Structure formats: structure tokens, C-alpha cells
Simulated assay, not measured.
Amino acid sequence: MFMGEFLHSIDTKGRIIVPSKFRDNLGNSFVVTRGLDKCLFAYPMEEWKILEDKLKQLPLTKKDARAFTRFFFSGAIECEVDKQGRINIPANLRSYAGIEKECNVIGVSNRVELWANDAWEDYVAESEESFAEIAENLMDFDI
């Protein structure tokens, strides 16, 4: 399980240090792809396989299913951690998430999310204002 929040810098080559607390669970090789809310999702291979199997079952005849699958898989890349604990995030993914210098790396249960620092701070500020309302709306899910 992934949890916590870490702020790291992207170097000029597009590399970022993967927090040591996440490295063991992510493994030496994992998948990074476009996520929701203009962030990137990183999945350990086992979790990626589970998600891949679920997405394969979506009906090809549904336009939304095709669009989501295209969006999700076309942005996916397998990343390998180097000896310094870094990964290289391709320019297209950095551009999608608006990651330029500082990046928040957060643990979200079965995945890691990478956010541009400004976007993450804005998201947290907005969410804090409506956290009680969000929690109330999730009561139906027995949380």
C-alpha cells in the first residue's frame, strides 16, 4: 500500500527520484501513464496487470470505453529505476501533467500519483474546503 506525500525536483533530463518508501512496492520496473485530474499514475506491474485485464473487458462498442482505453494505454510507459533511485519521465507525460520543476509524489493506496507542485497545492486547497461534503457523499460506500 502506498501512502504519504513527498516533494521532489525534476532535473533537466526529466528525471525524478522515486521516494525510497515507494521503491520497494513499485519494484525496479513499473508503469507510468496519464492519470485523472491532470496528474500521472504509477502502478507496480502486478497492479497494472489487474487494471489491464479489467480494461480489456470493456465493451469495444462503447465510445467512452474506447476513448478511455486509448487515453490510458497510449500514455503508458514502463519505467526502470536507476542506481540513484530515479526514473525518467518522458516529455509528453511531463507536459500532460504540467510538471516542470517541482513534483509532488503521493501514495494513493494501490498506486502512486505524480503532480505538478502548483496543481497539487491547488487541488489540496479546493479539496480541503469540500472534504466534509465529499466524505458525506461517500457514506453510501460504507466508509
Score class of each variant (00 low, 15 high):
residue 1 M to C: 09
residue 3 M to C: 12
residue 3 M to P: 01
residue 7 L to H: 00
residue 8 H to R: 10
residue 17 I to R: 01
residue 19 P to C: 06
residue 20 S to H: 04
residue 21 K to D: 07
residue 24 D to Q: 12
residue 24 D to T: 13
residue 25 N to L: 10
residue 25 N to R: 12
residue 27 G to V: 09
residue 28 N to A: 07
residue 29 S to K: 12
residue 31 V to I: 14
residue 34 R to K: 15
residue 36 L to V: 15
residue 36 L to F: 14
residue 40 L to H: 06
residue 43 Y to M: 03
residue 51 L to F: 07
residue 52 E to D: 10
residue 53 D to N: 14
residue 60 L to R: 12
residue 61 T to I: 10
residue 62 K to E: 10
residue 63 K to S: 07
residue 63 K to R: 10
residue 65 A to H: 08
residue 66 R to E: 05
residue 67 A to C: 01
residue 67 A to P: 00
residue 67 A to S: 11
residue 69 T to Q: 04
residue 70 R to A: 06
residue 72 F to E: 04
residue 74 S to R: 09
residue 76 A to F: 01
residue 76 A to E: 05
residue 76 A to K: 04
residue 79 C to E: 01
residue 84 Q to M: 04
residue 84 Q to S: 08
residue 87 I to M: 00
residue 88 N to D: 01
residue 89 I to G: 01
residue 91 A to P: 04
residue 91 A to G: 05
residue 101 K to L: 00
residue 101 K to P: 02
residue 102 E to F: 06
residue 106 I to R: 05
residue 107 G to D: 01
residue 112 V to I: 08
residue 112 V to L: 04
residue 113 E to S: 03
residue 113 E to Q: 07
residue 115 W to I: 01
residue 116 A to G: 06
residue 119 A to L: 13
residue 120 W to R: 06
residue 121 E to Q: 13
residue 121 E to N: 14
residue 121 E to F: 05
residue 122 D to V: 09
residue 123 Y to P: 00
residue 125 A to G: 13
residue 127 S to Q: 13
residue 129 E to P: 08
residue 130 S to C: 12
residue 130 S to Y: 09
residue 131 F to G: 08
residue 132 A to D: 15
residue 133 E to P: 10
residue 134 I to K: 13
residue 134 I to H: 11
residue 136 E to K: 15
residue 138 L to M: 14
residue 139 M to R: 15
residue 140 D to C: 09
residue 142 D to S: 14
residue 142 D to Y: 13
residue 143 I to T: 15
residue 143 I to E: 12
